[in-house]
Design a protein around this nucleic acid. Structure first.
Lengths: 152, 152
DNA sequence: ATATACTTGATCAATTTAGTCAACTATGTT
DNA sequence: AACATAGTTGACTAAATTGATCAAGTATAT
């Protein structure tokens, strides 16, 4: 379980765009240099972010990318979903044993444990905004998880 | 971000061994059948669990595996660490950009966000015991995360 | 003795992740 | 209009990880 390079890079790119919010667009080339990410990879990631509606692109000589929304209105969860599809992939049914004779239904308590973990992680990511990420010390106290554990 | 088959299988195997706790050992062959996991893979996973001290092996004609400790004394976190090494791999420095001109040090708030996520996930796994997993409804309310978000 | 069953390390295939490439389209500037 | 900048697209490749298999052992209860 780890943060992939796509997510790491996407997050850094979004923070860079947050810093430049309200100013002129940042080109993929520029972002590639300041963030030390291969330019083609930057383009690929920005394209996914664009398709998710998180950034806008501007062609031509002084083109580049800008945030679609204000930094405080963009959640880290949206960024992760844009590049990964799903934040936490459900496990039930993915493996042979699970499908054929699923021990995740009525016979043991494993399934809810995975589900809650997924919910917890999503909640965590959705509780953090780009604005939080721009702060030196990270976000203050973004998530309230109490409810999750009593959910039935 | 997902639960790997090793973790899924290891968890199921440990729950099966929990059910048989105090009884005769369960052979890899038996576990393979009841859990629908290839027998060689079962052996591989059980070996890792053994090296982590979570199960004991018994050779010979009525041999097999037994839990080393009572189900309520084994944490899910230990099971995950036994098969995966680390529950959540630290990201800082893993990628080129991070090493060369790390944006995770003093200049933005990304790093603490990953660290806290990792701490949260570890805390979650360590708050669940095999005993919890045996219950139909999963564990009750294993984790208190309040402290995590104010940690500095 | 012998059948059962754990032990070990190597190997292999499938999948995912990371990164590259090339051909193209749009746009501002001169 | 010409041109340079810069986004767009999809295919492609390489590396790493994951999932699974195999073979040649060793130990032990009966």
């Amino acid at each position: 379980m780890r943060i992939t390079s796509s997510v790491e890079y996407a997050t850094r790119l979004m923070v860079a765009l947050s810093r430049a919010f309200g100013q002129t667009p940042l080109s993929a080339e520029t972002l590639s240099e300041t963030e030390n990410v291969p330019v083609d990879y930057v383009n690929q990631i920005l394209l996914r972010l664009k398709r998710a509606g998180l950034v806008e692109s501007h062609r031509g000589i002084r083109g580049g990318y800008t945030l679609s929304k204000r930094p405080e209105q963009v959640k880290l969860g949206q960024v992760v979903r844009a590049v990964e599809g799903e934040i936490f992939e459900s496990v039930c049914g993915r493996y042979e044993g699970g499908k054929k004779d699923c021990h995740h239904q009525g016979r043991c308590g494993i399934s809810p444990v995975w589900r809650r973990l997924g919910a917890m992680i999503e909640e965590y990511f959705d509780g953090i905004t780009l604005d939080n990420l721009m702060q030196e010390q990270g976000m203050p106290c973004p998530v309230k998880l109490e409810g999750l554990f009593h959910e039935r």
